[in-house]
Design a protein around this nucleic acid. Structure first.
Lengths: 346, 346
DNA sequence: CCCAACTGAGAAAACCTTTTCCCAACCCTT
DNA sequence: AAGGGTTGGGAAAAGGTTTTCTCAGTTGGG
């Protein structure tokens, strides 16, 4: 006869430490100590308890442990760009660093909604997260949430930290340098720069480094072309750079990969060969774009995953009570060379 | 004089129910009941306790509540595609549905690593998640983790469910129909289909629906061209379709947006006008691609966010003990019309 | 005036684990 | 044989909340 209970899935009740203790014929205290390698008892007793626990499939209830230890091995990841391409590798890095330490991550997407943000933060605090990592879609903007004076440590990654806090961002000047210096080494002499809107801090940072490298190498200064982060702007910029009668660039350093793609497509449409006549380097190393351009795009990678990892580890040591000097730490970029920038001259 | 304590941030201790009770001059029991609207007491007492709690900034400790209620208001989101473009809107939907119900989400990226997957699942179970949502990058593959016979309910979204489980996927046949029927309505007569590898179930599903619609409309059958999910394959396919001396298609339905972009670019390079001479429709509605094609790409959207939302709500009702019929539920797609498919004939 | 019913609130158990303190038994020394 | 140290293990508190049970006092009806 089949019982009614079978019609709905019935979920097994977890086995508790008490049950292990009873089954092994000891007290819960002893059982706890046996499993945690604490206290004193005969090796035989300890082993018997462990075996019993194994047999019963005992797993300690983290909730109870956390309640007692005042440490939940849980952190919150707050972002207003959960589904953008910057946050993703960054979140992967954070997650990696934490998971290796037995810490789980609450993902909270707050969009640009202050109310939603506060809601999430309070929910996380109620759930006794050990700390919070804040990430965003822009290095030069604050999240729409006030994270100062929380009762847990906060680390910022790829977003503007509050005063006195710890933050990690990419070193955009370094990234731009990497690209422009690479062009110099390849013997390019007229290097242009096409980037996004001037309202982005990174646009100015990168443009500054671009100018500096040109000067250091005694190359002609070309005023950076600032526009949008789009392919369309890449097309437009090529029209400006290559449409006139003036001397043409032999290299274009682009503010992101989409602009770079637009530039490459526009150059091809004008019959200008990449990389033979003009080299192109992008920024972000967004693989799906960089590998689809013809030829595949050399691009600056911001190492967002390691940035996330660093942030995760920093938070962990903060949680452990290690003080950390406040301030923004810049992490270096990396140039991923593909085929759009040409080979060194023989 | 500045105390040493100021050098390191010291985090305020949360206030407990006991403190509220003492402060209001009642027992913890009464305080609890006052705040939860339970029990019986004078309106005056209740109000006084509430006011005290508000003043003290009392927030109940979720850990303690969860321990008692055997319900943590926490679920795990398991994915092997955390950082791919399918999971993202899906996760947003899941998250939305759950957050509205006060449930937090543990994000777990298991890649294709069975060991890592089991580790994550056990960690979540230890943390007493109320349920688990499994999502992946392919509708026709299982996650590398065994989620059958867990002690919590599991719902699958955009990944193959285990036997007897509840799963949600997009209705790819519906999506393909939407696209091909749209072409038919626009008066296109020779509709080609360029898609990904035959090893993907969706490729066959969509190709099947494509053939069916052609037949229903008495249009000539053209054997689908199966290749890769890339722009390059789109170029190649155009060479095959438009390179010979045979009759040329006047519409191409593509298996994803990248192929579609390749097709559109290749057509332009051949001087074939889109949408005047050939209409193109993509699949996935990956906005960043769809909006960068020239002209912007009409594409089938799988409504992944609502798929995620449905999955979240289904899990919630499962957690509440409402039984759900096992099986795969297919959710309809939606055609997002841009400019690559042309207007209806006058 | 007595009993029943109701009212407002508290005591205590429960959830599960960890840790401190304590105790009984044993061994050794003098 | 008495005193002290050691050994193996248990009792109980703690962590913060919810819920059931209990109870003293008050009100109402007969």
């Amino acid at each position: 006869m089949v019982s009614d209970a079978e019609s709905a899935p019935v979920f097994a009740k977890p086995v508790t430490l008490r049950e292990v203790a009873v089954s092994a014929g000891v007290s819960v205290a002893t059982a706890s100590k046996a499993l945690n390698g604490q206290g004193r008892m005969t090796a035989e007793t300890r082993e018997r308890i462990r075996e019993t626990a194994r047999l019963l499939g005992f797993r300690p209830n983290s909730l109870a442990q956390s309640l007692l230890r005042r440490r939940s091995f849980t952190v919150g990841l707050l972002t207003n760009d959960t589904y953008g391409r910057f946050s993703l590798p960054l979140m992967a890095g954070v997650s990696d660093a934490l998971v290796d330490n037995g810490v789980s991550v609450f993902l909270c997407n707050v969009e640009d909604d202050t109310r939603l943000g506060q809601l999430h933060v309070e929910a996380m605090l109620d759930k006794r997260v050990d700390g919070i990592i804040a990430t965003g879609k822009r290095i030069d903007r604050h999240l729409p949430v006030d994270l100062a004076n929380l009762r847990v440590p906060v680390v910022y990654a790829f977003t503007q930290p509050d005063a006195g806090a710890v933050g990690f961002v990419s070193d955009d000047a370094d990234g731009a340098r990497l690209a422009v210096e690479h062009f110099c080494r390849l013997g390019r002499r007229r290097i242009a720069h096409v980037s996004g809107p001037a309202s982005f801090a990174v646009v100015n940072t990168r443009a500054g480094a671009y100018r500096a490298v040109l000067q250091e190498n005694n190359l002609p200064a070309i005023e950076p072309l600032l526009g949008a982060w789009s392919e369309a702007w890449g097309h437009e910029a090529v029209a400006k750079l290559f449409g006139g009668r003036g001397e043409r660039p032999d290299a274009v350093f682009c503010g992101n990969d989409q602009i770079a793609r637009g530039v490459i497509d526009a150059l091809r449409e004008r019959g200008i060969r990449v990389p033979d006549e003009v080299g192109v380097i992008g920024f972000d190393n967004w693989e799906i774009v960089a590998e689809a351009t013809r030829p595949p795009l050399t691009s600056v990678d911001m190492n967002l995953a390691s940035l996330g990892r660093e942030a995760g580890l920093a938070l962990l040591s903060l949680v452990d009570g290690q003080p950390a000097a406040p301030g923004i730490r810049k992490l270096p970029c990396r140039l991923v060379v593909r085929q759009s920038c040409g080979s060194p001259p023989e």
